[in-house]
Design a protein around this nucleic acid. Structure first.
Length: 571
RNA sequence: GCACACGUGGCCUAGUCUGGAUAUGGCAGCAGCCUCCUAAGCUGCAGGUCGGGGGUUCGAAUCCCUCCGUGUGCGCCA
C-alpha cells in the first residue's frame, strides 16, 4: 500500500472541485515541489488560458473554494501555485503502521501477469569481465530486482557468444600453445588463467599466416557443424564463463538462464530466419551475400545494408540474434535488453528485420556508455584494463581497513564478513548511482567512495537502526505513531512514505538511479533524527520512536535488497 | 564526413521525457560538534556563464536551430 495515495487523491478531488466551481473542468498536474516549499502543489499556469485570468489570481480564488480536507493541514496560494501540506500526524500514523504491517513487502507493487525476459551481461567469453562492461550486469540485475518488486515475473538471461573468431582463436590457443610459453598470472581463477593464452594467440595469428589459416579452418568447420570443433570451442567458452559467473556472483548478480548462441545454428532456427528474410521485398544480394536494404528505416550510412548471410551462406551474429529474439518472444510478454552503446546499430537492424518478418514486437533496449580509464578505452588484449575482480578485491581491502579501525572488538571472521558486504556493495552502488547513458571515467577514489552518497552511508544508517532496536529489546508496537510530529520525525516519515512510488517509477520506467538517491535521502533523514532525537531515552515517546526506527530499518533493508546490497546489522 | 548519445560549481551528480517557484545531493576545501542510542555521522561557510550562440514562450537547465567538445557506430566481426 502506498501511504501517500490518500493524500494525493484528496488533493486531486479538492482541487478538481475548486476549479470546477470556477468553470474550469480540466485535468491538472499534482507535483512535489523540488524546493520543499510544500508537500504537494498544483501549478495553475495551464489554467490561465481556459479561465483567461492570471495564474496568481486563479490560485488565490481556487484556495478559497477548496472544500474541507481531512488529511491536509494547510492549503495556500503562492505565486500561481496551489500549495498543500499533509497532516503530519495522519501521515505518521498511516506510514509507520503500513511499514510495520507489511514488513519486507512494503514498497512492492501488486502482482502483474506479464512475464519479463531481461537479457543482460552477455559478454563474450574471451576474457574476465572488466569494469568497462561491468555496468551491464549491475544495471541488469538491479532492474530485474526492481521490476520483481514492481510485481513482474522476471527471468534474467545471458546469451553466450560461443560462435565466432575470437572464441575459436582462444580454443586454438589453449590447444596449441605450450603453457611454458606464456606469462604467469597472479590470480588463480579460471578466466584469468586463460588471458595470456588469448593474448599470445592473437599475437601469433597476426604474425604467422599459417596460424591464421589454422584458425580460419577451425572456424569453417565450426560453422559447418563439425561436432568435434564445436565441443572444443564450447568447452573453452565454459571455462571462461565459469570465471565470469563467479565474478558476478561475488557482487550478488544472479543469472537465471544461459542460452548458447551455437544452439541457433544447431537447431536450424537461424537458417529459418535466413529463409524468411530472403523472401522479403527489401532483400538484395551482393556477390552471394544477402542483405536487407533498410533505406528509409531511420538508419544511416553503410548500415542501411544489413547483411544477414556471408557469401558462403553462413549466418552472422545479428541473424542468430534474430532467431534468439523470436525464441524470447515465445517465452515472455516483455523483452528487455541491457546493451553497450556499440550495439545500437545492430539493434536497429534487428528491430527492422523483426518487423519485416511480420513480428509486431521489438525488444526494449537500455544502452549504457562504456566506462573508460583515464588513459583511454579498456582492452583485455592490450592489457589496458581493470578487471571487476580487481575492483572487488580492492574495495574489500579498503573496507577491511575501515572496519579494523573502528571495530577491533569483533572477531577476524566477522570483520571480514562485514568488509565483504561493504566493499561489494560500494561497487554496485557507485555504478547504479549514475544514469547508464552518462560517459564514465573510472577513478579508484570515486569507485571506493565510502562516505556521503555511497553504499556504506546507507548501510551504516541501517546498522545504527539495528543497534537501537537491539538495545531496546521488546517494545509496544501498538504505540500511536501520530505523536511523531517534530521536524526530524516528520522529515523522516515523509521519506519512508515515498518508497512505493520510488519503486514504481524506477521499475516501470527503468530509472534505477532513483533508488540509490532515495536510499541516501532516507539514510540522511535518519542520521539527522538519530543525532537530535533521543529514542531509548525518549520517555513517553520511546515506543512510538522505536516503531519509527523499526520502520526506517525495514525501508532501508527493502531498498538495499532491490539494489542487491546486504543490510548489515552492525558495522 | 554522416548518424546516435552525453556536456550542470575544482571533481561526480539530480532535475531534461512531461517548460513553471530561490537548480538536487555528494566528493574535495574551510570552520565547528563525541561525559548521551556506532563520528562510515551531524551543523555551518565558501563555490554556478546549467558547453557557446540564436530562436519559440508570459516563463527555458528542460522544446527547436546552429556551432564547439567528448563518447559510440558506420565490417560479408561478435
Amino acid at each position: 500500500m502506498d501511504p501517500l495515495r490518500r493524500f494525493r487523491s484528496e488533493v486531486e478531488s479538492a482541487a478538481k472541485e475548486a476549479f470546477r466551481s470556477m468553470g474550469a473542468d480540466v485535468s491538472f498536474e499534482i507535483e512535489t515541489p523540488s524546493t520543499g516549499i510544500a508537500d504537494l502543489a498544483v501549478p495553475c499556469f495551464p489554467l490561465a488560458k481556459v479561465l483567461r485570468k492570471a495564474p496568481v489570481a486563479i490560485a488565490e480564488e481556487a484556495v478559497s473554494k477548496l472544500p474541507p480536507m481531512a488529511t491536509i493541514s494547510k492549503a495556500w496560494a503562492e505565486r500561481g501555485y496551489l500549495n498543500f501540506n499533509m497532516d503530519t500526524a495522519a501521515l505518521a500514523a498511516s506510514t509507520v503502521r503500513t511499514v510495520l504491517e507489511e514488513g519486507p513487502r512494503y514498497g512492492q507493487g501488486e502482482e502483474r501477469p506479464e512475464k519479463v525476459l531481461l537479457e543482460h551481461t552477455s559478454v563474450n567469453p574471451t576474457g574476465p569481465i572488466h569494469v568497462g562492461r561491468a555496468r551491464n550486469p549491475i544495471i541488469g540485475d538491479t532492474l530485474a530486482r526492481c521490476m520483481r518488486a514492481c510485481g513482474y515475473d522476471v527471468t534474467t538471461e545471458y546469451l553466450v557468444n560461443d560462435v565466432g573468431k575470437q572464441v575459436v582463436l582462444l580454443a586454438w590457443g589453449l590447444e596449441n600453445i605450450d603453457p611454458s610459453e606464456v606469462d604467469m598470472v597472479d590470480r588463480d581463477k579460471a578466466d584469468h588463467r586463460l588471458v595470456p593464452f588469448y593474448r599470445k594467440a592473437n599475437q601469433m595469428m597476426e604474425e604467422d599466416s599459417e596460424v591464421a589459416e589454422q584458425v580460419a579452418d577451425m572456424l569453417v568447420r565450426f560453422e559447418a557443424g563439425d561436432e568435434e570443433v564445436i565441443e572444443k570451442v564450447r568447452k573453452t567458452a565454459s571455462i571462461m564463463l565459469d570465471g565470469i559467473v563467479q565474478s558476478l556472483n561475488a557482487i550478488n548478480v544472479n543469472i537465471d538462464r544461459f542460452t548458447w548462441e551455437s544452439d541457433f545454428i544447431k537447431d536450424g532456427s537461424a537458417r529459418k530466419v535466413v529463409d524468411e528474410l530472403s523472401k522479403c521485398a527489401v532483400c538484395r544480394e551482393d556477390k552471394g551475400a544477402k542483405y536487407l536494404d533498410l533505406e528509409g528505416c531511420g538508419i544511416h550510412g553503410r548500415g542501411t545494408k544489413f547483411f544477414f548471410t556471408r557469401a558462403d551462406g553462413t549466418t552472422l551474429y545479428t541473424t542468430r540474434d534474430i532467431a534468439y529474439h523470436l525464441d524470447k518472444f515465445c517465452r515472455s510478454d516483455r523483452t528487455i535488453n541491457i546493451l553497450g552503446e556499440d550495439q545500437k546499430l545492430g539493434q536497429a537492424q534487428l528491430a527492422n528485420a523483426l518487423r519485416f518478418l511480420g513480428e509486431e514486437r521489438a525488444p526494449e533496449c537500455i544502452f549504457y556508455s562504456f566506462v573508460s580509464l583515464p588513459q583511454g578505452r579498456m582492452s583485455t588484449r592490450k592489457g589496458v584494463v581493470v578487471y571487476l575482480d580487481d575492483l572487488i578485491e580492492e574495495a574489500e581491502e579498503r573496507a577491511m581497513e575501515e572496519v579494523r579501525k573502528r571495530r577491533d572488538d569483533l572477531s577476524e571472521e566477522r570483520m571480514e564478513e562485514i568488509a565483504r558486504n561493504i566493499g561489494r556493495g560500494a561497487v554496485r552502488y557507485n555504478i547504479v548511482r549514475v544514469q547508464p547513458e552518462k560517459q564514465l571515467t573510472f577513478k579508484w577514489e570515486e569507485a571506493l567512495n565510502f562516505e556521503g552518497n555511497s553504499a556504506p552511508f546507507v548501510q551504516y544508517a541501517h546498522a545504527r537502526a539495528c543497534s537501537i532496536l537491539r538495545k531496546a529489546g521488546d517494545y509496544d508496537r501498538s504505540a500511536d505513531p501520530s505523536v511523531l510530529t517534530n521536524e526530524y520525525e516528520a522529515k523522516l516519515i515523509k521519506e519512508l512514505a515515498k518508497l512505493p512510488s520510488v519503486i514504481e517509477e524506477a521499475g516501470e520506467r527503468a530509472r534505477i538511479h532513483l533508488l540509490p538517491a532515495y536510499c541516501h535521502d532516507v539514510a540522511s533523514a535518519f542520521n539527522q533524527f538519530y543525532t537530535y532525537v533521543p529514542v531509548l531515552k525518549g520517555e513517553e515517546l520511546r515506543d512510538a520512536r522505536l516503531a519509527l526506527v523499526e520502520a526506517t530499518r525495514i525501508v532501508l533493508a527493502n531498498a538495499l535488497q532491490i539494489l542487491g546490497l546486504s543490510a548489515p546489522e552492525e558495522m
